[in-house]
Amino acid sequence: MNRPSTFDQTREVARRSVLATIRQPAQWAPALIFPLFLVAVNSGGLNAATKIPGFPTDSYLTFALAIPFMQAGIFSLLNAGTDLARDIEDGFLDRMALTPISRSALLTGELAGVVVQGFMFGAIFLAVGLAAGADFESGAVGVLLLLALASAITLALGCVGIFVAARIGSSEAVQGLFPLFFMFLFFSSMAMPRPLIEQDWFRAVATANPISYLIEGVRGLFISGVDGEQLALAFGICAAITVIFMFGATRALSARLGR
């Protein structure tokens, strides 16, 4: 039998990953509904905050729309990690490992579902936001950039989930990341622009927190137009997270599969 090409292998694993994602609405529905609920609540609840001198927009909805992109990313981290951990737990991975598939094809494929989800959710969040009256200042190019950034964010965070799954091999451990990542999200510039955070310690934490720059990358496209530096930073951080954790995941998986 011919050895299948890496592309073929990746495509097949990816197909399974995308199908598995679509067929489990219980997995992705909360990632869609929950962030939209929060943004709806917060945009009404915190609209008064736009009256703070120096606030960059007069619509808190526009300001807060970046948050769902991050929350969807966190859900994708959990889902990608849980899927892989379950594959490890129930022996599915062993079965795949007995086929001549390369481990990078395996991991790339596993992440495909997550990236598709990121892209779709980005489009939905944008559409819902615009329908609800949010501003979008960066035009058609901005839409493409936004969807690319949404996919990059879910890919990067998905790699973190895959790394933990490959390293520890337990879906419970992956679920345990949820509070940790919520912490990252909460202690970022999520709810207030960094310069307007009053408490010095909080501003320092938010400045050191990479999540702040991902949020600001998305938010910039809504509020102020295409800002090369801001976007480079956001995409750069995504790339760094992806490379580091993909490398770690590949190594962890090699150790696990013994090849």
Partner: peptide
Amino acid sequence: IPALLFPLFFFTAFAGGLSNVENVPGF
């Protein structure tokens, strides 16, 4: 641990991150 940490976490995140809200006219 989660039972003790979660409220604390919400408290610091809300009270710390949003304290500027008290400067909003009408607060």
